[in-house]
Simulated scan of single mutants.
Amino acid sequence: MSDPSPRRYDLDWIRIGAFFLLILYHVGMFYVPWDWHVKSPQPVAWLEPVMLLTNPWRLSLLFLVSGAATRFMADKLAAGALAGQRTARLLPPLVFGMLIIVPPQSYYEIVEQLGFSEGYLAFYGRYLTASGGWCDAGGCLITPTWNHLWFVAYLLVYTLALAALIAWAKPALRRLEQGLARLPAWALLVCPIIVLGLARAVLLPRFGITHALVDDWYNHVLSFSLFLFGYLTAKSDDVRRRLISLRWPALAVALVAYGLFSLYAWTWREAVAEPAPGLVLAMRFVYAVDQWGAIVAILGFGARHLNRPHPALAYLTLAVFPYYIVHQSVIVVAGHHLAQSGLPQGLEAGLLIGVTVAACGLTYEVVRRLGWLRPLFGLKSEQHSARGREQALPIQNG
């Protein structure tokens, strides 16, 4: 297999776009009628199909791109060094986030949902000691928690698992890589849909999605499979050419599947009776078609049009992980208070987006200037960045 480019700028652009979509998605979670940490008192029902536009593929795509970026790292490092570097880059932000960044999310959640009124300091002591006892009919809030930082925890675990595979089963990985490179275009589109559909049909009803790591088996099969796929195909020019050739057909099937699943979800939400089991099963595969079709289309269009540098790319590549770490807490805190302001909802939503982006940007500008803060937000130390062009984890190409 050839390695035609020393850098995949398209993967950088896709990663940045997916993370910024995630910010908009979590703003949407404040308004859509689905359950979340805090909610607008005026839910917006028409947002549901809008949210479903990215819901099947946004995080799956990030795990795939993370695996691809890990390949570029792994080719330069021994398995032990890879595991050590990733642990050093991902574990501090995860721990810092659980102790400092995430707690306001849990605080405002129990303020809104349980009427907690004892103040933040009283809450924080119980948050750290897991002695909150914050329960309602839907269950209990277990703390400390990682909330949206579950992605970082899972990425760390997947990287360590991959490092073990590299150390102990590298010939098997090589055979898988060669097999994927030989797949014809139709199989590259169809076979993953079958795998994803079967996983959703068999594992999702049994395990659900918990983000709790130890019992999240459907999510592990989904996310680690895509992480491994990204690792195995990152340097395959054959796979890249086939993704480019599939971009329009994949987009077409993804849009059709999105329309079908959105209609089903909207109808189901409004229906009194549960849908027939056969329909539920069929929709699990329709969801997989939407999921993989969108991923293939994004990768194909990205490889065709985005594999080029830009002056903004270096800044955005560095900024995206600190933005990710803080964005959800900003949305929760700002959303809770803006909802009490009495502003028109459209103005309120615009302010919520603006406040979130501004707070994320300010955080990054402060963090990147303070050496002791940089590791806590996934940035290399100043000493390392001085020796070469820095890249932000969790997903980087070199």
Rank of each mutant, 00 (worst) to 15 (best):
38 V>M: 10
101 I>H: 03
146 W>T: 10
48 E>N: 11
93 P>R: 11
131 S>G: 08
117 S>T: 12
126 R>D: 01
52 L>A: 12
42 Q>N: 08
116 F>M: 08
90 L>K: 00
86 R>A: 02
124 Y>A: 13
132 G>N: 03
96 F>L: 13
140 C>L: 04
106 S>Y: 05
34 W>R: 00
137 A>M: 00
95 V>C: 12
141 L>H: 08
120 Y>W: 14
33 P>Q: 09
139 G>M: 08
50 V>N: 12
47 L>S: 10
148 H>Q: 15
118 E>H: 13
101 I>V: 15
42 Q>G: 02
37 H>V: 15
52 L>R: 14
69 A>N: 02
76 K>A: 02
123 F>W: 13
134 W>M: 01
119 G>T: 14
71 R>H: 08
127 Y>R: 09
105 Q>H: 08
82 L>C: 05
34 W>Y: 11
133 G>Q: 04
79 A>W: 10
53 L>M: 15
85 Q>T: 00
148 H>G: 09
111 V>G: 13
82 L>H: 04
40 S>W: 00
54 T>E: 10
61 L>T: 14
42 Q>A: 05
115 G>N: 08
74 A>L: 04
74 A>F: 07
73 M>C: 10
109 E>P: 07
35 D>V: 10
86 R>K: 09
81 A>C: 02
139 G>E: 05
51 M>G: 04
147 N>G: 13
83 A>D: 00
35 D>G: 06
142 I>Q: 11
36 W>T: 11
68 A>P: 09
130 A>Y: 07
76 K>R: 14
86 R>S: 04
86 R>L: 01
71 R>Q: 06
59 L>T: 05
46 W>L: 05
129 T>S: 09
46 W>T: 12
102 V>H: 03
67 G>C: 09
104 P>K: 09
72 F>C: 06
33 P>N: 07
135 C>Q: 03
103 P>L: 06
79 A>L: 09
131 S>I: 06
98 M>D: 03
90 L>P: 02
107 Y>A: 09
104 P>H: 08
111 V>P: 05
108 Y>M: 15
121 L>I: 10
71 R>A: 06
58 R>G: 04
88 A>I: 09
88 A>V: 07
93 P>D: 06
37 H>D: 14
94 L>P: 15
147 N>P: 07
99 L>I: 07
45 A>S: 11
78 A>D: 05
143 T>R: 01
87 T>R: 07
147 N>S: 14
76 K>W: 02
50 V>L: 15
